[in-house]
Amino acid sequence: MATVSLFTLTCHETSESAGDEVFINVDDQRVFGIVEMNNGQAREVGFSKPFSGQVRVNLYDTDNGSDPLGSIVVRENEAGQGRKVGTFREARAHYTLTYEVVG
């Protein structure tokens, strides 16, 4: 069993010119947001979860329901590799998430 910790979500480019209202789900459970984000902004996520195998991290924009902005798969075998950066690039958006797997 491992634990994933989500640290910082950074917005490099929003999906809309007026900014995004985003949230993060880990395996279909909301763990962060809804927060407003614009180009160049970073937000501390501060979430950890024990898991086995893998977890899926999804980023959504809430403007018209829940528009997906991308997803990453975090695997247990990433444990011990230090902090990593996952990239979300859908719907013209570009976000990165710093995370780490331990255990």
Results as ranks from 00 to 15, higher is better:
Met1Ala: 14
Ala2Gly: 06
Ser5Gly: 05
Leu6Gln: 02
Leu6Thr: 04
Leu6Arg: 02
Thr8Glu: 11
Thr8Gly: 00
Thr8Arg: 03
Leu9Met: 04
Thr10Asn: 08
Thr10Arg: 08
Cys11Leu: 05
His12Ile: 05
His12Glu: 09
Glu13Tyr: 03
Thr14Tyr: 00
Thr14Asp: 08
Thr14Trp: 04
Ser15Arg: 07
Ser17Asn: 07
Ala18Asn: 09
Gly19Phe: 12
Gly19Arg: 06
Gly19Leu: 07
Gly19Ala: 07
Asp20Val: 12
Asp20Ser: 07
Glu21Ile: 09
Glu21Val: 13
Val22Asp: 02
Phe23Trp: 01
Phe23Glu: 01
Ile24Asn: 11
Ile24Cys: 10
Ile24Met: 10
Ile24Lys: 04
Asn25Lys: 15
Asn25Ala: 12
Asp28Asn: 15
Gln29Trp: 09
Arg30Gly: 11
Arg30Trp: 04
Arg30Pro: 12
Val31Cys: 06
Ile34Thr: 10
Ile34Gly: 02
Ile34Leu: 08
Glu36Asp: 14
Glu36His: 15
Glu36Met: 14
Met37Tyr: 06
Met37Ile: 13
Met37Cys: 06
Asn38Thr: 13
Asn38His: 15
Asn39Gly: 03
Asn39Leu: 08
Asn39Arg: 11
Asn39Thr: 08
Asn39Tyr: 12
Gly40Thr: 05
Gln41Gly: 02
Gln41Phe: 09
Ala42Arg: 02
Arg43Ser: 14
Arg43Glu: 15
Arg43Asp: 14
Glu44Leu: 08
Glu44Ala: 14
Lys49Glu: 15
Phe51Arg: 00
Gly53Asn: 08
Gln54Gly: 11
Val55Gly: 01
Arg56Phe: 13
Arg56Thr: 15
Val57Arg: 02
Val57Leu: 06
Val57Lys: 03
Asn58Glu: 15
Asn58Thr: 12
Asn58Met: 11
Asn58Cys: 13
Leu59Val: 02
Leu59Glu: 01
Tyr60Gln: 08
Tyr60Val: 12
Tyr60Leu: 15
Asp61Gln: 09
Thr62Lys: 11
Thr62Ala: 15
Asn64Gln: 11
Gly65Gln: 11
Ser66Arg: 12
Asp67Gly: 09
Pro68Lys: 05
Leu69Ser: 05
Leu69Ile: 05
Ser71Tyr: 14
Ser71Asn: 09
Ile72His: 10
Ile72Ala: 07
Val74Thr: 05
Val74Phe: 02
Arg75Ser: 14
Asn77His: 14
Glu78Leu: 06
Glu78Arg: 01
Ala79Gly: 11
Gly80His: 04
Gly80Asn: 03
Gly80Thr: 01
Gly80Asp: 04
Gln81Glu: 11
Arg83Met: 10
Arg83Gln: 15
Lys84Leu: 14
Val85Asn: 03
Val85Arg: 06
Gly86Ser: 05
Gly86Arg: 01
Thr87Arg: 11
Phe88Asp: 00
Phe88Trp: 04
Arg89Asn: 08
Glu90Leu: 07
Glu90Ala: 07
Glu90Asp: 07
Ala91Met: 08
Arg92Glu: 11
Arg92Asn: 12
His94Tyr: 05
His94Arg: 06
Tyr95Ile: 08
Tyr95Gly: 01
Thr98Asp: 06
Tyr99Glu: 00
Tyr99Ile: 04
Glu100Arg: 04
Glu100Val: 11
Val101Gly: 03
Val101Met: 05
Val102Asn: 12
Val102Glu: 14
Gly103Asn: 10
Gly103Val: 09
